[in-house]
């Protein structure tokens, strides 16, 4: 595992995420959001889960980010208004980050190096999805259908 690549990807991901969380303009934030997810996908690649990384790119950049952009466009009249920034949220986030880091560093059993593994091919993932995980897969399919219908119902014109 290439440590140089890791450091670059990590810095880029976290930087994009921070930009997405703090940029004033919504459109910029949405684009940074897409960038952060490219970084996460790259981290997945680095970890050997290429399939999941591709799924992440397709879904988040192809679908969710586009959806966010559309929402921003649909609620455009509201966008220009002044937005305050809640500094107590920053404090809580920093506290959570320090707590997590402290406990991770404190746990010695986590400082291990990745073992050599057999490559996770798409074939293996597909086999698992169609055998042991076929039942959850059907459930998720049902859930997605329900979410689709639910979203449509929510955005339908309100009857007066």
């Amino acid at each position: 595992m290439n440590s140089a690549a890791f450091i670059i990807i990590a810095i880029l991901t976290l930087g994009a995420a921070l930009a997405a969380a703090t940029l004033q303009k919504l459109m910029h934030a949405a684009l940074s959001f897409a960038g952060a997810f490219v970084g996460v996908a790259a981290l997945f690649f680095l970890l050997g889960a290429e399939f999941v990384g591709l799924v992440l790119v397709f879904i988040y950049i192809g679908a969710v980010a586009v959806l966010i952009v559309f929402t921003i466009l649909l609620t455009r009249r509201d966008v220009g208004k002044d937005r305050g920034f809640n500094w107590s949220g920053v404090a809580i986030a920093v506290a959570v980050f320090s707590g997590l880091t402290w406990s991770i560093l404190k746990t010695q059993s986590l400082s291990i190096i990745a073992p050599h593994i057999r490559a996770l091919t798409v074939k293996r993932v597909g086999e698992a999805l169609m055998t042991s995980y076929v039942w959850p897969l059907q459930c998720v399919g049902l859930l997605l259908t329900a979410a689709l219908i639910g979203a449509l119902v929510l955005v339908m014109e309100e009857k007066r």
Partner: peptide
Amino acid sequence: IQTYLGVVAIGMLALLLLYAWLA
């Protein structure tokens, strides 16, 4: 809603610290 979410985060942090301290 954000206040509620913040309280949830603080609670989670407290649990985390409690767990790490006990371990």
